[in-house]
Design a protein around this nucleic acid. Structure first.
Length: 552
RNA sequence: GCACCAGUAGCUCAGCUGGAUAGAGCAACGGACUACGAAUCCGUAGGUCGGGGGUUCGAAUCCCUCCUGGUGUACCA
């Protein structure tokens, strides 16, 4: 990478300066190399003079002048150096350095942007984790896309990724679900029924009831047993969730059932282990976990006086099992409404002797749905929510993916349904995909005209000197580092913004310069650029799970 | 009350973890198809970065404090 090469050169200059007693070595590692905001400030910029001036109590511009002299000796890499503002050293590299990026991209192909920095570290990404009580809502949609995009980014950077879905098909929620299904079943048979007060009112419960009717006729009309109702509801809802996930191209390696934590004795063993460490006590008939030992404000109940555990206990047990399964990094994608569990779970695993630093929780804010310019209030129970399936029907999988990734997790996401449906043509995803299709089209066009498509080694790349061309080359050169950063920071939105930027640069270039002209040498050089761009844009789209249409 | 997140152009949001003159997309206005794809491009306009202090060569970014919105603060998950 060019930036790291340049950093090494600057480090070399710094070291020489130390050797020649121009400055002390106190500034080592404190200065940075950056891409400046404005193009007239060079390709790269370093604040080394400013940093050293602070330490040495000297004039930064004077130090900058010394750096400039040292840097200018590397003529293979650097074309010019200037000093600007308070003492920034701005560096312009040789055009050939940028032009060679095309060769790198050609060589790497589909691997361009991918890397091995993850060093095959085993990472578990846990996400969605919705209980089978209803279809996935738009909030789940955001989480599904976010989690999958993070998983894909980690895969692209050489991590060994494992996707897991944690669910619970037992307990109160499922009982209410069974009761809801039974009520609808009786309703369909014109029997008297009482719908549970906090029951699930969604239309999908009728689907469950109809399926029961089809399978059992009216044989369940006298049944007090909730099991068949619950089982059918769970089966159908889970099938529905799975198919929604499949539509989005999301595949889990494992579905982890909360109930197995009970069946396998993990719940009990966590309690006894914590008790053995003196971190558990009984009070008011309940069992408490001394979270105050970990700096929390109050202790928490882990087993209610009814004998039933609170959600914290299985959560802690689940995380202990994750640790036992030998992952190097545990990533949880949670909605911000689950924030309360995080400190408790971390306290739990810490108490059990595991390293909480291995756990990273990505909390994402809610999705606000806008319809007719007004916010849609949503509730799973009342079922006045828009499902992911409906959303996919309306805007398509690529657009949905793109929208959900457009915001950083910390920001609330406003999803304007009217805009997404009525004006899906103006969706930014098309802007990027159109650029890709256009690139493909140019290459087709060249072939049709009998123009040979040559490799980087066979063309005169020094002809690529237009500002728009250099700009594109520079952007492409920064792609691998961007992917690394987006992956390690768990921020897929960076890829989205990059793609929009790169697509925009291409559209501008396209409108200003013709690729295929009578000038064969120039055309072939530009076709090389087009090919590299197609690879870069395509890789970017694929890395976050978007499709790459060659025609639209 | 306390904790976490957010507050940047009319709207929706970026801002590479402390850099130079704060950006993009919509929306508004004015232009570009005898053209490798006009799902595109070019231009104009739009700002006390919520307010106020502080840290330093330098702050949208870090610290303190207040204001506003969201979420949580359960023997719900």
């Amino acid at each position: 990478m060019i930036k790291t090469r340049l950093k090494e050169v600057i480090d070399g200059c710094f070291a020489r300066g130390v050797q020649e007693k121009r400055w002390s070595e106190g500034g080592a590692g404190k200065y940075t190399v950056e891409i400046p905001k404005h193009e007239n400030q060079g390709d790269y910029s370093t604040n080394i003079a400013l940093v050293l001036a602070g330490i040495e109590k000297r004039n930064p511009r004077e130090i900058a002048a010394q750096i400039k002299t040292l840097l200018e000796q590397d003529e293979a890499l650097i074309s010019s150096v200037s000093i600007a503002g308070p003492g920034f050293v701005n560096i312009t590299v040789q055009p050939a350095v940028w032009q060679r990026v095309i060769g790198d991209i050609e060589k790497a192909g589909e691997a361009f942007g991918r890397s091995g920095i993850g060093a095959a570290r085993r990472v578990m990404v846990e996400f969605v984790s919705a209980n089978p009580t209803g279809p996935l809502s738009v909030g789940h949609g955001r989480q599904a896309i976010l989690g999958d995009a993070i998983a894909r980014l980690l895969e692209a950077t050489g991590h060994d990724v494992y996707r897991e879905y944690y669910y619970n098909n037992a307990g109160r929620q499922m009982r209410v679900l069974g009761e809801s299904a039974r009520a609808r079943y009786r309703e369909l048979l014109d029997l008297d029924y009482t719908f549970p007060e906090d029951g699930y009112q969604g239309e999908y419960i009728y689907d469950v009831a109809r399926a029961l009717q089809q399978e059992y006729g009216d044989r369940l009309s006298n049944s007090d047993d909730l099991v068949p109702f619950q089982a059918k509801a769970e089966e159908l809802i889970f099938r529905d969730i799975s198919s929604t996930l499949a539509r989005m191209g999301i595949v889990f390696d494992n579905y982890y059932n909360e109930r197995s934590l009970y069946d396998d004795g993990h719940i009990d063993s966590v309690v006894s282990e914590l008790r053995g460490k003196g971190l558990v006590y009984e009070h008011d008939n309940a069992t408490w976990f001394k979270t105050t030992e970990f700096g929390h404000e109050q202790d928490r109940v882990i087993i209610k006086s009814s004998g039933e555990p609170t959600y914290r206990l299985p959560d802690i047990a689940y995380h202990r099992e994750k640790f036992k399964r030998n992952f190097d990094w545990l990533i949880n994608i949670f909605g911000s409404d689950h924030i309360a569990t995080v400190p408790d779970v971390l306290a739990g695993v810490t108490a059990l002797g595991y390293d909480p630093a291995k756990v990273t929780v990505v909390l994402h804010q809610f999705v606000t749905l806008m319809r007719d310019g007004k916010q849609v209030k949503m509730s799973t129970r009342k079922a006045n929510f828009v499902t992911v399936d409906e959303l996919l029907d309306e805007v398509g999988t690529d657009a949905a993916r793109f929208f959900f990734m457009m915001r950083k997790p910390d920001s609330q996401l406003e999803f304007d349904l009217d805009l997404a449906t009525r004006e899906s043509q103006e969706n930014p995803v098309y802007y990027v995909q159109y650029a890709y299709a256009r690139l493909c089209s140019i290459i087709r066009q060249a072939r049709d005209r009998g123009l040979a498509i040559l490799g980087f080694g066979q063309v005169d790349s020094s002809l690529l000197t237009q500002p728009e061309e250099i700009r594109i080359l520079k952007s492409m050169a920064s792609f691998p580092l961007l992917v690394e950063q987006a992956a390690l920071e768990l921020e897929p939105h960076r890829i989205i913004f990059y793609l929009m930027e790169l697509a925009g640069q291409f559209h501008s270039y396209y409108n200003k310069h013709k690729v295929i002209t009578e000038d064969t040498a120039l055309s072939q050089a530009r076709l090389c650029l087009v090919g590299a761009l197609r690879t870069t844009l395509g890789n970017g789209l694929r890395i976050v799970g978007l499709s790459t249409p060659e025609q639209m």
